[in-house]
Amino acid sequence: MGLLDKEFTDGNIVIAKADDLLNWARLSSLWQLSFGLACCAIEMMATSASHYDFDRFGVMPRPTPRQADVIIISGTVTLKMATRIKRLYEQMPDPKYIISMGSCSNCGGPYWEHGYHVLKGVDRIIPVDVYVPGCPPRPEALLEGLLKLQEKIRNESLVKKTA
C-alpha cells in the first residue's frame, strides 16, 4: 500500500487521500465482540491464542457491543438466539462489519435438513460481509477471512455509499 511504503524523508510529512487514511485506520484496529456460540468458537479462541495470534492484526476482544467494530458469528444460530443476535447487531455503532464463520452460520451447516430449531444461515437476519467456509474452519482460514475483510475496507470510500 503506497501510503505506508513512502519513506519519511523531509520533515516527517506524508501526503495521502482522506479515504486512504481513514480506511487504513479502520482496518488496522478492528475490535471484535467476543461472541462464540459453538464449536467454531473454540477455533476462534485458538486463533486468538499465541500459536496463530490474532492480536498482531490489531484485533482485540471486547465484551460489549457498544465498543466493537466487527462481530464474528461463530457457530450455529438457533431460532431462540436469532432475536438476541439482531439486538446485538443493532447495538453496535457504525461502521460495523460481520464475519460469518463456519458452515452453520453460512447456510445451516450439517443441520439443514431436519433441524427444526436451527436458522439456516445468519444472513437471513443480518447482512454479512465475509463468509468463511469450513466445519470448523482452520485458524489459517479465519485469518484469511480477516485479510479479505481488510481488503474490502481498504476499497471503501467516504463519498460513494457501499451496499
Partner: peptide, 27 residues
C-alpha cells in the same frame, strides 16, 4: 423457546412450521 406453538418436536408425526417470529424456518 417458551412461546413455541407448533407442537412437540420429537413425536414421529411432527410438522415444521413455516415461519417463526418473521424468520423462515425451513431451508
Amino acid at each position: 423457546p417458551y412461546d413455541w406453538e407448533a407442537g412437540y418436536p420429537l413425536r414421529k408425526d411432527y410438522k415444521n412450521p413455516e415461519f417463526y417470529q418473521g424468520m423462515k424456518v425451513t431451508y
